[in-house]
Amino acid sequence: MSEEIVLSIFRGDAAGGQEVEYRVPLTPGMVVLDAVHQVQAHQAQDLAVRWNCKAAHCGSCGAEINGHPKLLCKTRLDDYVGETVHIRPMQTFPIIKDLVADVSWNFEVAKKVPAFQPSVPVPFKMQQFDVDRIQEFHHCIECFLCQDVCHVLRDHNAKDQYFGPRFMVKMAEFEMHPRDGGDRVPMLAHEAGLNMCNVTKCCTEVCPQHIRITDNAIIPLKERVADQYWDPLRALFRKKKAPAATGQSVQG
């Protein structure tokens, strides 16, 4: 088992850099993160990479492998035998060093998401089928790979106009909670920039948690916005929590 794998890892920072080749012995079941750790321990102590769990739970290790946004800890190297594996940081965010991107913008956006507002006191009575739909959204590990791939953020750098798919999932999680009394529709329609999304579904394709971001979060949210802004009466029936903003006129 002396098979070797060739990694070409981006080394550099905001000032620039280039890919550097490293060779590591391939062991059974090895994931890309294992190989990066091998390089760290034996060839480049200061190679920067983020990780925590090595089990696809924490969402720290998002990067681009041969151009595809992926988790380093979930990507098996046996899928790449005979190829050079190019590893670069996520491109939509500023780089800090090597494989580590500055994802702080996401945390700024997170602060804007209005918190869950219980409409009744706990303990809640909710059936499993009531919560199945939102539990899907709770699978999100905040890896930001969907943010990385979304062309609105990536190609158009419209970070001031759209919160991005991750936060549509988050807003959907609260908004569709059967015991939530808040109303995030005005924010979705305006500041959050839901209309910037043109449903290309690239986000869904890269989500390592298989969340159907577009079909199950974004499209239903778009429907809510449409209902509330164009059909206030239907909105009343649909959303029994009757948000105060229902009758609000269309602004901007």
Binding site: R50, N52, H57, C58, G59, S60, F107
Partner: peptide, 11 residues
């Protein structure tokens, strides 16, 4: 030591 939401508890 990590980003917010990544601590060991997440596992």
């Amino acid at each position: 030591k990590s980003l917010l939401g990544k601590a060991h508890t997440v596992m």
